[in-house]
Write a protein that binds this DNA or RNA. Structure first.
Lengths: 147, 147
DNA sequence: CCGTATCCGACCGGATACTG
DNA sequence: CAGTATCCGGTCGGATACGG
């Protein structure tokens, strides 16, 4: 999700976040949709979850994350870290030593989030093959329609 | 998440998916991360959840969705619908009448997914204000650093 | 009614180079 | 060690127009 998250604006989703706004949602499920979307947008992006996972286990240093979240670039690590910090999911601690030392720790809120994520993971686990089958089937029919 | 969903592949993810492979993952959380990411990518995009929500309630017609999922364009409705169908989350039924009539129904799998999503929604609900506060605080400090 | 095709802007994320 | 700055491609998604 997500590339459009700053320009989005379309409807409920994105905007509600800033202060405490939420008024617009009419139906019940729309509020749910909105809320879920907000969470999803928060943990979206290729790296947020990987980082959250590492930090949820224990406090991590910048370079430690750079190594353990394999494939991530310096840039994206910094960006994702900043966003997670901004949302109060990570705490950043700077030790003004030389060389510098910065630690990131998951907040209790983030740990809770991870637990919720586990529910999603279980769903995926249960339906992994069903989804794979559905895809193959769909692609097969789409690729060779007339046969 | 997601714009990078085809190129993703970076690390753990890809290998585990295909059949039942999982051996390589060293730690436990890495496998979880991978799975969660896959789910997230599936329901990512601005519209998937909104559509899923509608269809989970009852079978919907194309135009009904176009109205209820407010803000969505025809193009994105079609695209998202196709993807959800491809993953076996929606069933598309065409009635070759005139005028045409097409119905979309959530599969049991999709309903289950929605239930898992509810867990996320609850998390967001619980921490909504905390996150809002964190953001305000962060932005305040970022905006007026020296003051 | 239910789409598909094309154009096009916005943003995410990678590579690389530079700094305190 | 821990970032920041810039360039740049790829993709998502909106607007619009056309077809069965």
């Amino acid at each position: 999700m997500s590339q459009g998250n700053s320009a989005v604006t379309v409807q409920v989703q994105a905007r509600a976040a800033s202060a405490g706004v939420e008024g617009t949602a009419s139906d019940d499920h729309e509020r749910t949709a909105c809320t879920v979307l907000q969470v999803l947008e928060r943990v979206s992006g290729k790296w947020a979850i990987g980082i959250l996972l590492e930090c949820a286990q224990a406090t991590r240093r910048f370079t430690e994350l750079e190594r353990s979240v394999k494939g991530i670039s310096r840039r994206m690590l910094t960006l994702t870290l900043r966003n997670l910090e901004r949302d109060g999911l990570l705490v950043r601690t700077v030790y003004p030593t030389v060389p510098p030392k910065v630690e990131y720790t998951a907040t209790p809120m983030a740990v809770e989030l991870y637990e919720s994520l586990a529910s999603l993971a279980m769903w995926a686990e249960r339906h992994r093959s069903a989804i794979a089958d559905a895809r193959s089937e769909y692609d097969r029919k789409a690729t060779a329609p007339t046969a």
